[in-house]
């Protein structure tokens, strides 16, 4: 749901300003292109906070019900510590949700700096997210015959990363989570850099 709500709001960030004629006004102020971009990015993150907080409200309920239902099974423990299993699972879920929210916002904001029209920006954002969530795993399933495909998916796909937190053996979960976090941090930084450069170039070209 985060991947549906955030792009539909954030992808039209810059094109909407352009269509309404506000972008020139924004550039006429003392704000730098970086500050405009930062504002748009946090606005995008804020637009997905509703779904994010709904998920965060559900997690404690699951935790309470889980504790009430009996002892946590040893074969599903987290990092080999049966007493930390539930908190580990909750931590994994929160981490994947947070990274997904920030990534969706960064991707949509970056795409919106390129596009001139809201519709193109919206279409391209959804297409890129679709590529990541559907086409990329399909490509890996069709090409990968050895076990490396699962590892790549666990690091690059948020749903698989979340699934591993539930089903994977305890030794692997932390490794996958660290790799997932590192991979997405690099992707977000890269997107941020591209967006910044694109906004700067557009600003200079329009001047």
């Amino acid at each position: 749901m985060i991947f549906l709500v955030v792009p539909s709001v954030a992808a039209s960030g810059f094109p909407r300003e352009r269509e309404q004629g506000n972008l020139d006004f924004l550039r006429g102020t003392w704000l730098t292109s970086g500050e405009i971009l930062t504002g748009k990015f946090w606005g995008a993150v804020y637009s997905g906070l509703g779904v994010y907080s709904a998920a965060l409200w559900t997690l404690p309920a699951i935790a309470v019900l889980e504790v009430a239902s009996g002892p946590w099974e040893n074969d599903r423990s987290f990092l080999g510590h049966p007493d930390r299993s539930l908190s580990g699972l909750m931590f994994s879920a929160v981490l994947v949700l947070t990274v997904s929210l920030i990534f969706a916002a960064a991707l949509s904001t970056t795409v919106s700096t390129f596009a001139r029209r809201s519709l193109s920006s919206l279409g391209l954002s959804f297409f890129l997210l679709l590529s990541l969530l559907v086409l990329w795993p399909m490509f890996l399933v069709l090409t990968g015959s050895d076990g490396s495909m699962e590892e790549v998916l666990g690091v690059t796909h948020p749903f698989v990363a979340l699934g591993y937190a539930f089903f994977q053996s305890q030794e692997k979960v932390l490794g996958y989570l660290i790799a997932f976090f590192a991979c997405y941090s690099v992707a977000i930084s890269l997107l941020w850099g591209i967006a910044h450069e694109s906004a700067r170039i557009t600003h200079e070209r329009d001047e």
């Binding site: 930062t38 504002g39 748009k40 606005g43 804020y46 637009s47 997905g48 509703g50």
Partner: peptide, 22 residues
């Protein structure tokens, strides 16, 4: 940040209705 403030004050995703729906 002035743009962030403008976004949450003026855009539809800052309204109570959008927050309630999402």
């Amino acid at each position: 940040n002035a743009v962030f403030q403008k976004e949450i004050k003026a855009e539809f995703f800052g309204t109570l209705r959008f927050r309630r729906i999402t």
